[in-house]
Design a protein around this nucleic acid. Structure first.
Lengths: 195, 195
DNA sequence: GTCTATAGGGTGATAGAC
DNA sequence: GTCTATCACCCTATAGAC
């Protein structure tokens, strides 16, 4: 039980570090975040971090998969709704409900992707793109079930709108942007004719 | 002539530093960019930079106003077109024509705003927001001239769409996103009924 | 497994010669 | 006004005690 814990539950400390990394990196950005910052929030001694993650980049990767996990949690819940259109509306409502966080820090995945895309080493940028692709794929599936033509194009438009409104809400420090654009997206969904 | 040069032309070296800052910060991000990086591109000795800019933050501010200048150049050109709708289409076409840069580095102002918004000191985040507000104001003016109801909401939607498509093109490393979403925006503009 | 101490490298900024 | 040399600091990562 002692040694199998690592593989299964990934260890309590390791998990605390992952969550702290996701949280602190989201608020401060990857570059400004130090190992010490994450260690403090996770309540783990600084030097001990390297027992669980060999490099800082591994911690950023961990933060990214933590966000992927959150996304999976959200979409799994929405999948219980019978109507694809209602699932998409649920997604939009979830975004709008995060308006205050978005106005202060933007979209967790989007802002991290922006930052990591400015590197040319390490390939962490690809990881960030992967999480966004997960979201795109789920959205596309809903449009497909709605028998919409070009579900991939519609998914691109919807996710793009989300990233845009998050960025503007953040840059203008105005949560109201999320409300206004969210409402517009809901109306847009309703305007798509059923088949 | 020797001493007045500083005030008028702002000095050749100072200008080279501003442009280098805008360029390097756009590609590497503000945090990863060192004074030495900028100095090298501007062809100015490292220690000499501090004669023109007392801190690194002042250089980032300079980069921001350089972007504001570029924006002003673009909109001033478009203002020569007689029809507001054509001006907006010109703006969108300008965005699409930058698709390869967008796919690699995103929108210059947007990505910088995302990064600076993760700070809580210095107030540089407000500066970044200001440049975006300039763009919003110009777009809103066009919708107003088109006698559209709620020109501010339409401006928010258009700029938001631009930021979103730039971010996705960047995260997916796919310039095609700019083409697809750009075409959609052009069609959307045409669908707005005249008055 | 856990933690402390510290090495090693790089960055922003300054002092002062020219 | 221009530039070189250098300081002081902070951060990642490691070595090794417990």
């Amino acid at each position: 039980m002692k040694e199998s814990a690592r593989g299964r539950a990934a260890g309590a400390k390791r998990q605390r570090l992952m969550r702290a990394a996701a949280d602190v990196v989201y608020r401060q950005g990857a570059e400004r975040t130090t190992i010490a910052d994450i260690a403090r929030v996770a309540d783990v001694p600084v030097g001990n971090v390297y027992y669980y993650f060999k490099t800082k980049d591994e911690l950023v990767t961990a933060a990214l998969s933590e966000h992927a996990r959150q996304l999976d949690l959200l979409t799994s819940g929405l999948d219980r709704l019978p109507d694809p259109r209602e699932r998409l509306k649920g997604l939009i409502n979830a975004w709008v409900s995060q308006r205050d966080l978005a106005a202060r820090y933007g979209c967790p995945t989007g802002t991290l992707a922006v930052e990591l895309d400015k590197r040319d080493e390490g390939g962490l940028d690809v990881e960030a793109g992967r999480v966004i692709r997960l979201l795109l794929a789920w959205v596309e599936r809903q449009f497909h079930e709605l028998d919409q033509p070009e579900p991939d194009g519609l998914a691109l438009t919807l996710v793009s709108a989300y990233q845009g409104m998050s960025l503007l809400a953040n840059a203008l420090r105005d949560p109201g942007v999320m409300d206004r654009e969210g409402a517009r997206l809901l109306a847009w969904l309703d305007s798509l004719k059923a088949t």
